[in-house]
Design a binder for these strands. Structure first.
Lengths: 130, 130
DNA sequence: CAGTATCCTGTGAGATACTG
DNA sequence: CAGTATCTCACAGGATACTG
């Protein structure tokens, strides 16, 4: 079992350094989440399958290059599926996989927290300026 | 009320572009979360107040500079408190504020998801390599 | 102990232009 | 339409050394 996120190091065990271990689940997830556009793309796909351009419009200010990169990464993780229709003009649909969809739950928890507490954060930031 | 994370744009309303609005709660939260060390520091503080060095040891491989920066940012957001004792040698204790502590809940949801689903992600990544 | 002070580098990501 | 292909660059973050 891939151990814990943080050091439980008592000072004697050097092998406890697994924070950066590629197998640490939290590290993997927070790593992906850390990428700037991941969340936005996943959230954008929530309503259902969507074409590249529609997705781009929904996410907002994102270049096609970066959107493609993000999509490829999420595909590699099995969170998003890509379906290309052989037509002209070309048509491609992206969708959340069941796995990707399951991630919506914890994300929703974060959003809920955001809605509820961001005013306090903002207030604190204002105070910090003075 | 600060609107939604994504475009609900039907093509006619340009003012719906609030994805990058500084007031969008989700953006603010995901922005902070996006910073590489935020999560680790908050998680590290979960057990209770902690001194700089202990914190550094718990987080693992992090330079004092970056830890300080992260801590200052979290302080500014009101998620972490800093308490300096006038002593020699100096002693400083960092702790989660109630606000910071409240963030542990959604984070726990993400961790739970991670524990449960990262094997699938890893499997998918392996498959993507071939 | 709890940080600063410097210097330096990688790379995430923006802008722009082009194509099957 | 759904992407590539380049070029460019700021800056988050690392290494190292120093100090009240």
């Amino acid at each position: 079992m891939p151990t814990s996120l943080l050091e439980e190091n008592d000072g004697t065990d050097a092998s406890a350094k697994d924070v950066l271990s590629p197998d640490c689940p939290s590290r993997i997830v927070f790593g992906r989440i850390g990428e700037r556009w991941t969340m936005f793309v996943i959230l954008a796909l929530e309503p259902g399958p969507m074409r590249f351009t529609a997705l781009k419009a929904r996410v907002g200010v994102i270049t096609p290059k970066v959107l493609t990169e993000t999509l490829r990464a999420l595909e590699g993780d099995g969170l998003v599926s890509r379906r290309a229709f052989v037509e002209s003009p070309p048509r491609v649909e992206y969708a959340l996989t069941p796995l990707g969809r399951s991630l919506l739950e914890p994300i929703a928890a974060m959003r809920a927290w955001a809605e509820a507490h961001v005013p306090e954060v903002l207030e604190s930031r204002d105070r910090a300026l003075s």
